[in-house]
Design a protein around this nucleic acid. Structure first.
Lengths: 214, 214
DNA sequence: GTCTATATACTGATAGAC
DNA sequence: GTCTATCAGTATATAGAC
């Protein structure tokens, strides 16, 4: 594994072999990182190992790139609604909604991101791989911080309340990330169906389960 | 894997080698099912493979038994508060609280349960193993159904409201199960610390993030 | 760029000593 | 009941043909 000589930049071109990333994401989603062999990924591509190893030096590097792409999509989904004239509570709700939709529409990539969070403290990585993993975790933390900062703005302007904002965000993101455990697209499902589902989830997060009456 | 001859009952004694289960749970939590070798489990026990294989016929069987024990603890934790004179909302809150505490106190086992849910549709199991896995999923569904039924009672008595009770429960359990991703016991942590943390999470679930004022 | 070997290593599971 | 070999299968990664 760890060699004396350290090669330079990974083979992966920035352009990105989108097809390869997608195939890998699907395999990792269905079988998990360790149970997925490079042959599995290649087979799904209708190719052989050679093609995969031409772009990625190792299975771990491939996994990391899928993870990175998943996080890129996460940011892309919520970024447009982070800032704006609305109160913090309104913007936070919009962010939750977009994240929920992103979970459903990028199910394979999102599942890999969740797995990646799980692998955080995993051993068996080279120093270089650990560096990349730490970088990915920083990105993940920044993502969570984005929600937190908007939530705090909501507390300031009176549109958000919580016993502990940091914990509340963890709970809310937990509810959303959990989507990738139970959600599976039904045949013939429309974008509207997903929106309705996302609204129900986000409403629950925003208003809770307790009836106001008490 | 699949043999012509089918052996009878698994070697595992019902008494349960608690020490073995605990060691396995910890390994599975830290490295996941596939990355954990039987040698890892044995090493943690200060023993060798022989001991493990004396009790379990395969790594999968061992994993399933850890999973089963995790679910047993889940039921044990919430069962005392499912029924009672209180309104549905009050009982549901108590169930959430106990589940949250159970997540923290049985972190290793709970993490395995979460992994097990993930493995649901995984291939590469013998017919017998698939039978056991289905049984475990049924148990898991029953657990979720327990929360749902109390939530419906709450809707009836006016103490619970949600746009969709089934979805709301999935969201709430997602927030709670997600605990095993980010929670790690701090040194010197007391039971009270955990209770405070659990209360914050459950309050968020019950009352949401939106300020009532609107 | 992609394929076909192939080296190398690991690990799940078994057999049999003690 | 636990340990020490050991086998067999599989998977990562490489080398080199095309």
């Amino acid at each position: 594994m760890a060699r004396g000589t350290l090669r330079e930049a990974p083979r992966s071109d920035k352009n990105g072999n989108a097809e390869l990333l997608q195939a890998a994401a699907e395999c990792f989603m269905e079988q998990g990182f360790h149970a997925t062999s490079i042959d599995d990924v290649a087979r799904r591509l209708g190719a052989t190992k050679g093609r995969v190893y031409h772009y990625y030096r190792s299975k771990t590097d491939l996994f990391f790139d899928v993870h990175r792409e998943g996080m890129r999509r996460n940011f892309e989904a919520v970024r447009p609604v982070v800032r704006g004239p609305d109160k913090g509570g309104v913007r936070l709700r919009a962010m939750f909604l977009r994240h929920a939709l992103s979970m459903m529409e990028n199910l394979a990539f999102e599942t890999v991101v969740v797995q990646g969070v799980h692998m955080h403290r995993l051993a068996a990585t080279t120093p270089e791989q650990r560096r990349v993993l730490n970088e990915l975790m920083t990105i993940r933390n920044d993502f969570e911080a984005l929600f937190k900062s908007v939530a705090y703005e909501g507390v300031e302007d009176g549109s958000i309340k919580a016993p502990d904002v940091s914990i509340a965000i963890k709970a809310a993101l937990g509810a959303l990330n959990w989507i990738c455990i139970w959600y599976r697209p039904r045949t013939g499902e429309t974008e509207d169906d997903r929106l309705i589902l996302a609204e129900k989830i986000v409403d629950t997060i925003m208003h809770g389960l307790a009836a106001e009456a008490e």
